[in-house]
Design a protein around this nucleic acid. Structure first.
Length: 353
DNA sequence: AAGTCGGGGGC
DNA sequence: GCCCCAGACTT
């Protein structure tokens, strides 16, 4: 059989695939697109609730396109990779207003949209329009590298080319969407990253990695992760019952999210008020006057490439903050309208203002 | 071609 | 701790 892998995969999909998800079998390109963007580098269990909330609030792409940025970011809050949210809004508005709501229906046009790369374009093209483009996500790389015993690194251009060609050869062109869904379900439930279910796998007799007993060692990645440590000291400025927040805009983590006044240092500061006051006046001007009310415990958060350490300092100001610092003055009640990083919301959950 | 962008879960 | 997750974008 030329494509034994494909046949066994489709058989397994019909009889042994128990995975259900709300967007499975969906044909509305808006819903497919939304689910795929939410699921980029995100586990299905984590993205599911977000998808449901988005669909409930924004039934159509036009509804999403007309929404204020802040509302959409608030709905995305906590999901991470916030450029996805920015691109989601840009693409929604492009399709709704520049294309009169018509979602593009060719692979190349879909691929040209902001926030849509090779994976997402193939997913939308196959699920919504039945176009013959194989998806390549973490599941597919893993399944193919194990089945064929490929040790070419998946995170380099040579590997991408090799896997792309192979995946498209294996694709069932009669029903690309079903095939694409099946191979991802297979990777997620059988050919798992750790402790794959090789004993009950329908491909076990042909799988090279299973024959060699090296399934868990594939796929190969060439890059090793480098992490840096940063120290964030957040000053919760209050004045006459209100608070100052600012939107992040640098090419840095948490772009578009809001935060308190931040002082970042190279080294950890002890919680001494004298040092904290010196640091904040150094950062925001020596005319800044006020009292430090409280200093929180140390908090830390592990991101993929960074470890954030720091704490939260309540500071009652004697005067309003100068306009040019770019802060926004809000009341306690307005706080819930803005999206904050988890580093901040986790603090707020323990210490509501 | 390499670096960067979150947050959570499994082990 | 380390690795991974329905990847994409920037440099």
């Amino acid at each position: 059989m030329q494509k034994a892998f494909t046949n066994l995969l489709l058989n397994w999909n019909q009889s042994g695939n128990l995975r259900t998800m709300p967007w499975k079998g969906e044909r509305d390109p808006y819903r497919i697109w939304l689910s795929e963007v939410i699921l980029q580098q995100t586990r299905v269990e984590q993205g599911l609730a977000y998808y449901n909330r988005f669909i409930e609030k924004y039934h159509t792409i036009r509804d999403l396109a007309m929404a204020p940025d802040e509302d959409v970011f608030k709905l995305w809050e906590g999901l991470g990779y916030y450029s996805r949210c920015r691109n989601l809004l840009a693409t929604a508005r492009f399709i709704a207003f520049e294309r009169n709501g018509r979602f593009p229906d060719t692979f190349e046009e879909i691929l040209s949209l902001k926030g849509i790369g090779p994976y997402t374009a193939a997913a939308i093209a196959s699920f919504a329009y039945g176009l013959p483009h194989a998806v390549l996500d973490g599941n597919v790389f893993r399944v193919l590298s194990r089945y064929f015993g490929i040790t070419t690194p998946v995170d380099q251009p040579e590997g991408k080319k090799l896997y792309t060609r192979l995946a498209n050869e294996l694709l069932d062109t009669d029903s690309p969407g079903t095939y694409n869904q099946a191979i991802m379900d297979f990777g997620a439930t059988i050919c798992k990253p750790r402790q794959p279910l090789c004993q009950v796998c329908v491909q076990r007799n042909d799988c090279e990695a299973n024959k060699l007993g090296i399934a868990e060692q594939l796929p190969v990645k060439s890059k090793s992760l480098v992490r840096r440590t940063r120290f964030f000291y957040y000053y919760i400025f209050s004045y006459e019952g209100g608070f100052y927040i600012r939107q992040r805009s640098d090419s840095d983590i948490w772009h578009s999210l809001y935060e308190w006044a931040l002082v970042e240092t190279e080294e950890a500061m002890k919680g001494e008020k004298k040092d904290l006051m010196h640091a904040v006046r150094n950062a925001y001007g020596n005319r800044l006057k006020g009292n430090i009310i409280s200093v929180s415990d140390q908090y830390s958060q592990q991101l993929t490439h960074q470890k954030i350490n720091g704490c939260f300092i309540h500071m009652e100001l004697d005067h309003p903050l100068p306009e040019q610092l770019g802060f926004r003055f809000i009341t306690r009640k307005q706080l819930g309208n803005f999206a904050f990083p988890r580093f901040i919301t986790r603090y707020l959950e323990k210490h509501p203002l």
